[in-house]
């Protein structure tokens, strides 16, 4: 208590991060409902890896460990990464990804607050480039695969790489709805007939559309609690809607509709949880809108024309690069100086 102000709002980084984790729960719950508890194993593995990597890095960097471990930021990175990769993946995949995210993408850049790129998305990018095949085997939602996989078998696969007798990996997993669409279109499939495939539901993929809705719900909660602003999610979703809508109207046979884009892949997770990461997004309102706009355009382009199943991660990383420039360009006018510009 040396300088004013002597009072502070009872708010903390730790509480903010906790709120974000809390807001992920509806999406995770729906995930478990459709795909079984494998995702919980991923989340747990990622969390443990993240916390131990964080502690190790803090020790190596000679920083106090307890206050930083308690800030929950490593947990959030872990959860976001776990939610971005297939739940039915060998255990080392999530461990390697999380370690890379925390050690390289976060701590080598200076730790909390100093990383220019979203660590979870760096982890995702590293995994999808290094282990593309493991990264495309997604669990089929309940009832869709040739056979359901109970929890015991899921654990068996994750840790021992063994599936029950008579089952192949292709039998229990599938490509994501976005990936499937792209592949089918590539093979000159017709949009209408593709979307009639059993993996597609009302809006997008069976199951995944509901998970997206869960994340939307969590996002609305975050906005209501003013943990995030409206600029990034709103502009991202509106832009994605608009651009996919325009393309869809021009050629409905080749371009999926805007709602499909909204509820596929990581659109909702990205709009509310990934792009809104304060450390790697712009600080000015105008800057945030530009950032979200760019991210939406890039997401769409990568989804439609790129070689990867989803575009949110790379769009986020590409826009992360632009953040300092966007911030410098979009400095708002200050009190009493609005006529000066």
């Amino acid at each position: 208590m040396l300088f004013s102000p002597y009072i502070t709002k009872p708010d903390s980084v730790s509480k903010i991060m906790l709120q974000v984790l809390f807001a992920l729960i509806p999406g995770i719950a729906i995930y478990v409902w459709f795909y079984g508890p494998a995702i919980l194993v991923s989340l747990l593995l990622a969390s443990l890896t993240a916390l131990s990597t964080e502690a190790l890095m803090l020790k190596l960097r000679e920083r106090p460990i307890a206050p930083f471990l308690k800030d929950n930021s490593a947990l959030l990175t872990a959860w976001l990464l776990a939610l971005s990769i297939p739940p039915l993946a060998p255990w080392w995949l999530i461990v390697v990804g999380t370690m890379f995210a925390i050690a390289i993408a976060k701590h080598l850049y200076g730790g909390l607050g100093s990383n220019p790129f979203n660590p979870a998305m760096i982890g995702y990018a590293v995994l999808i480039i290094s282990f593309p095949s493991q990264m495309t085997h997604w669990l089929a939602p309940g009832g869709l695969g040739s056979a359901g996989l109970d929890f015991q078998s899921q654990l068996n696969y994750i840790f021992r790489g063994a599936l029950p007798d008579g089952l192949t990996l292709d039998g229990v997993t599938m490509a994501t709805p976005l990936d499937t669409l792209k592949t089918q279109l590539h093979m000159n499939g017709q949009m209408k007939s593709i979307l009639e495939m059993p993996i597609y539901g009302r809006l997008a993929g069976v199951g995944s559309e509901w998970v997206s809705l869960g994340f939307l719900l969590g996002g609305i909660y975050l906005y209501a609690r003013r943990i995030i602003g409206w600029h990034i999610p709103a502009i991202f979703l509106i832009t994605l809607f608009a651009i996919s809508g325009v393309f869809h109207l021009m050629d409905p046979a080749r371009y999926a509709g805007p709602l499909f884009q909204w509820f596929s892949g990581a659109s909702m997770l990205g709009a509310f949880f990934i792009l809104t990461d304060p450390i790697t997004s712009p600080t000015t309102p105008k800057g945030r809108m530009i950032f979200a706009f760019g991210a939406a355009i890039l997401t769409f382009l990568i989804r439609v024309y790129g070689g990867f199943p989803d575009g949110v991660a790379f769009a986020t990383l590409l826009m992360n690069i632009c953040v300092p420039l966007i911030d410098a360009w979009t400095q708002p006018a200050v009190f009493g100086r609005k006529d000066e510009r």
């Binding site: 708010d11 450390i279 009190f335």
Partner: peptide, 22 residues
């Protein structure tokens, strides 16, 4: 005062600033 952590650019300060600074 509680321990100081690095800035996470959350802009709560910018939202609170009556002079509209960053």
């Amino acid at each position: 005062p509680r321990p100081v952590l690095p800035c996470i650019r959350c802009t709560r300060c910018a939202d609170a600033c009556p002079a509209e600074l960053q």
